[in-house]
Deep mutational scan, measured.
Amino acid sequence: RLGFCQHHDDEVLHLYCDTCSVPICRECTMGRHGGHSFIYLQE
């Protein structure tokens, strides 16, 4: 089961930031992890 983002309370962690080695949400890709390399996580 996927968890929720600690920075965006209502967002599920659907992605993994390869650059930072952390799970991220959709909102994170447009903010603090913008321009980073990421992949989609599987449930």
Rank of each mutant, 00 (worst) to 15 (best):
Y40C: 13
I24T: 04
E43P: 05
S21Y: 08
G3D: 08
G31F: 06
Q42S: 14
S37E: 05
C17Q: 00
L13D: 04
G31R: 09
H36L: 00
R26N: 05
D18Y: 05
L15M: 11
E27H: 06
T29Q: 14
G31S: 11
C25V: 01
Q6P: 05
E43K: 06
C5W: 00
H36T: 00
H33M: 02
G3I: 06
Y16H: 13
G31I: 05
S21Q: 07
G34T: 14
V12L: 11
E11P: 04
D18P: 05
R32C: 11
T19F: 12
T29V: 07
G3M: 04
H7R: 07
G31Y: 10
I24F: 05
Q6N: 09
S21M: 12
F4E: 02
L2W: 06
C25G: 02
H14R: 10
Q42G: 13
Q6E: 13
R1L: 03
G31C: 04
S37A: 13
C17H: 01
G34L: 05
I39R: 15
E27R: 13
M30H: 14
I39Y: 14
V22W: 00
P23Y: 03
I39E: 05
H33Y: 02
H14T: 09
L13R: 04
G31A: 10
C20W: 00
H7Y: 05
G3Y: 06
H8C: 04
D9R: 14
I39T: 15
C5D: 01
L41F: 13
V12R: 14
G35H: 05
R26D: 09
S37V: 13
H14K: 14
Y16P: 01
D10L: 04
E11S: 07
P23I: 02
H14F: 09
H36Q: 01
Y16E: 08
Y16A: 03
R32E: 15
H33N: 00
R26E: 06
I39C: 14
R32S: 12
G35S: 13
G31E: 10
L15V: 07
D18E: 15
G31Q: 15
F4I: 10
V22L: 14
S37Q: 14
H8K: 07
C17A: 01
L41Y: 13
E27M: 09
D9C: 10
D18H: 13
H8V: 04
E43A: 11
L13P: 05
G31T: 11
H7F: 12
G3Q: 09
E43G: 15
H33V: 01
E43V: 11
D10V: 06
L13S: 14
D10M: 05
I24Q: 02
T29I: 10
Y40D: 15
E11T: 11
L2R: 04
G31N: 13
L2G: 13
H8W: 04
P23D: 05
G3S: 10
R1T: 15
I24E: 02
H14E: 13
I24H: 02
T19V: 07
M30D: 14
L41I: 05
G3K: 12
M30C: 11
V12D: 09
L13G: 04
V22M: 12
C28R: 01
H36N: 01
Y40T: 14
V12F: 11
C20M: 00
G31W: 04
M30P: 04
D18M: 05
H8A: 06
H36S: 01
I39W: 09
M30T: 14
C28A: 02
L2E: 15
C28L: 02
M30N: 14
R26C: 07
H36D: 02
S37D: 12
R26V: 11
Y40P: 13
H36E: 02
H8P: 05
H8Y: 03
L15E: 04
E27A: 10
V12K: 12
C5F: 00
C17P: 02
R1A: 06
H14M: 06
E27C: 05
D10S: 11
R26M: 04
S21C: 10
V22F: 10
Y40H: 14
Q42I: 07
C25M: 02
E43W: 02
D9P: 13
P23W: 11
I24A: 06
L15G: 03
E11K: 09
V22T: 15
Q6S: 10
L2T: 05
G34M: 11
G34R: 12
D9L: 10
Q42H: 10
G3H: 05
G34W: 03
P23T: 09
V22N: 03
Y16N: 06
E11R: 05
L15H: 10
H7V: 06
Q42Y: 04
